[in-house]
């Protein structure tokens, strides 16, 4: 067992434990913090896989910006835990676990049948692989159109967020979802 395999197994255990912690903790704040741990571990995997630029983007965008947004909304709404945890579909939970176990079994079977068990060519240790320069060259040469389309996506998301959360000043109600207090 090489040192790299030991590191991989330790990190994988931490990643799965953090994901399970996110799944099982009843407080949404704890869930968010467990997810930050998971994202950090996955960033370490990216470093092991020879993707330093993606690892840094993972830390800044995912673990930084997106999770701060999550924590901000949780604390803004005061919705750490549900007030009346009612179970409408009580049979759904065990069925979901059984079906996901079946999914995991099939995925494991397919992965083990791919013949990828031998270590691939060691491209990760070459200098230019995964460097910001190489990523940028590929991004602006071959993927220029998807890159520009992404800007349109982000613009429409921004406009959508403003429309959804804008409060109509005259009536004081949200325009995105009409007010309904009956149920």
């Amino acid at each position: 067992m090489t040192a790299e395999l030991i590191i991989f197994v330790l990190l994988a255990v931490i990643a799965v434990a953090a994901a399970l912690g996110m799944l099982l903790s009843s407080n949404a704040i704890y869930s968010a913090l467990f997810l930050v741990v998971n994202f950090g571990v996955v960033a370490t995997f990216y470093l092991l896989l020879g993707a330093p630029f993606i690892a840094m983007v993972q830390v800044t965008v995912y673990a930084g910006a997106i999770m701060v947004l999550f924590l901000f909304v949780i604390m803004l709404l005061g919705a750490e835990r549900l007030r009346h945890p009612n179970q409408v579909l009580s049979w759904q939970q065990p069925l979901a676990v059984v079906l996901v176990m079946a999914l995991l079994g099939f995925a494991g079977y397919v992965v083990s049948m791919q013949g990828l068990a031998s270590p691939p060519v060691d491209v990760a240790n070459t200098v230019s692989y995964g460097s910001p320069a190489a990523i940028g060259e590929l991004l602006f040469r071959e993927y220029l159109f998807p890159f520009e389309a992404t800007s349109l996506l982000l613009l429409s998301a921004m406009v959508g967020v403003v429309v959804l959360t804008a409060v109509d000043a005259r009536r004081g109600v949200s325009r995105g979802v009409s007010r309904d207090r009956r149920s």
Partner: peptide, 23 residues
């Protein structure tokens, strides 16, 4: 070098945990 299969297996496990969370 860690084989790609190990990463795919870890990816499948994390994905399944996510599916359970949604459901």
């Amino acid at each position: 070098m860690i084989p790609t299969t190990y990463y795919l297996a870890l990816s499948a496990i994390l994905f399944s945990i996510g599916v359970i969370g949604v459901l």
